[in-house]
Amino acid sequence: MIVAERKPLEEIESMLKGYRRVLTVGCGTCVAVCLAGGEKEVGILNAELQIARKLDENPIELGAACVERQCDMEFLDELQGMVDQYDAILSMACGAGVQFMAERFEDVPVFPAVDTTFIGANRDVGWYEEKCRACGTCVLGMTAGICPVTMCAKGLFNGPCGGTNNGYCEIGNDQPCAWYRIYERLARQGRLEQIMEIHPANEWRNQTPRTLVQAAYRKRKELAAS
């Protein structure tokens, strides 16, 4: 899932300085699960803003909403009737949600209330670990389920490098060496020979924003485009 972190109040306040009526919209999926932008966070952020603006003698009128997913237009439609009453939207979704919101309501300024941080997994309540960089060429099959793009400081596809140090990465002893772990797990599974296969370097240059159409839906997209 996408993991995000609430922006500091100060930053949000400065974005909203000139606006008096703001609609705060939570997203009920990824950012709710990572406790950054669900319905509860909307209420808390609004209370903070209300206190701060009142103390600044620049009171603000705040609306609250939370949609299932801001990265689906259909859910954004639910806000249709509400948006006109506000002069700005504060989106608590990830960057994808914020952009879809801005696209859906083009006449209204949309501001992000969270910093989208990474694709991660939930270790415990409020504790997330980055697991994937969305590189577009998943190599987990040959790396024993450990992502070298995310976990290796150099993002090596053929490791380890010479800096591997008793299980830790040369950048420091807090950081496990990804390739050491890959080696250990491949060995444990009896498929160590796979580490000898050379994986061609990924083409990182000139990357453009990606669009993904699931195979089963390509026809559907063509139809929509025509």
Binding site: L9, L49, I51, L55
Partner: peptide, 8 residues
């Protein structure tokens, strides 16, 4: 932390 951030 939150109220201090908001100025209280």
């Amino acid at each position: 932390r939150l109220i201090a951030g908001a100025g209280l």
